[in-house]
Amino acid sequence: MIREKLINIVMECRELFLQGYHADKNVQYKGTVDLVTEYDVAIEKRLSKSLQEAFPDFEIIGEESTKEITYPKKAIYIDPIDGTTNFIHSLPFCAISVGVWEEGRAVAGVVYNPVLDECFSAERGGGAYLNDKRIFVSKQHDFQQSLIVTGFPYTKVTKGEDYEWVLRTMANMLPITRDIRRTGSAAIDLCYVACGKFEAYYECNLKPWDVAAGVLIVEEAHGKVSNEKGEEYALGEHIILSSNALVHNELLKNINIG
């Protein structure tokens, strides 16, 4: 099974991830608030080597090594540490994310948080799992009683369209939901929708490696993932929405209020 192969490869990086989490780190800046550590680079190198050996027909697209994002027919998208800012600040919401895509569709994915020892995984048609337990989305159908999670794009520093969109959507939804959370890891947010902790998640301006694994995990947990038009989400689209499917229409409606 592809899922089991991926889990084994990701687990090879567990000790390195935990070592980095507890260590003093050399922090560098890719942008004003976009950070990278030596552990992001080291984990990606280790993952890339093992994945290339296990899946020689697939192109590896990694956050730290890819200069130009492409969408080949057979691709494996790696985020060695999704939630690097949390990782640096010793906040436990950070994870390794690996998603396998073929012909524009997710085939398998693993999101592993070594700090909390939470391994989310899925293979198309085989269900979604947290460690060895099958998971499903929440059964909540009332948007007012739904807990929503979101994220803030790095482009917020320019106070441009993304920044305005974030403020507008939060203003729309805060009064009509139970509350809104922000963990700082898109991969974990998607997985927490998949296991029923959150009813819905939305964000803009993400990279493919942020969501390549989590999208399938939500779908295999019987949730829904779309763009802002309600259409099937494709990697690279500007806005992603995911939910337990029961509140998806309300989520769409409130995302699109001008």
Rank of each mutant, 00 (worst) to 15 (best):
M1C: 09
R3W: 01
K5F: 02
K5T: 15
V10T: 13
V10A: 12
C13G: 08
R14N: 13
L16C: 14
F17W: 06
D24R: 14
V27S: 10
V33T: 15
L35H: 07
V36N: 07
T37M: 12
E38R: 08
E38D: 15
E38C: 05
D40S: 06
D40G: 09
D40E: 08
V41H: 01
A42I: 02
I43W: 08
E44M: 09
E44I: 05
K45V: 13
R46T: 13
S48D: 01
S50K: 15
L51K: 08
Q52C: 03
A54L: 05
A54N: 05
G62A: 09
E63H: 12
E64G: 12
T66L: 07
T66H: 04
T66Y: 04
K67M: 15
I69P: 01
P72E: 10
K74R: 14
K74L: 07
A75H: 06
A75K: 08
I78G: 03
I78K: 02
D82T: 02
T84G: 14
L91A: 10
P92C: 10
G99P: 07
W101G: 00
E102W: 02
E102P: 03
G104V: 10
R105K: 14
V107C: 02
V107K: 05
A108S: 15
G109S: 13
V110K: 03
P114D: 06
C119T: 07
C119R: 00
S121K: 02
A122V: 00
G126Y: 08
G126N: 14
G127N: 12
A128N: 04
L130P: 05
N131C: 12
N131G: 13
R134D: 01
I135S: 06
I135A: 04
I135N: 02
V137P: 00
K139R: 13
L147M: 11
I148L: 06
G151K: 06
G160I: 06
E164M: 11
E164N: 12
V166W: 02
V166N: 00
L167W: 08
M170N: 13
A171L: 14
M173A: 10
P175D: 08
I176F: 05
I176M: 04
R178C: 09
R178F: 09
R181C: 12
R181T: 11
T183W: 01
S185V: 03
A186F: 04
A186D: 11
I188S: 00
V193G: 09
V193T: 10
C195L: 04
C195I: 02
C195V: 01
A200Y: 09
Y201M: 08
C204K: 07
L206F: 11
K207Y: 13
K207A: 15
D210C: 03
D210F: 03
D210I: 04
V211Q: 01
L216R: 00
L216D: 00
E219S: 01
A221T: 09
N227H: 03
N227L: 00
E231I: 07
E232R: 13
E232P: 09
L235A: 08
L235C: 06
E237H: 14
H238E: 10
I239T: 14
I240W: 00
I240L: 12
L241C: 13
S242Q: 05
V247E: 11
N249F: 03
N249P: 00
N249D: 15
E250K: 15
K253Y: 12
I255T: 05
N256I: 09
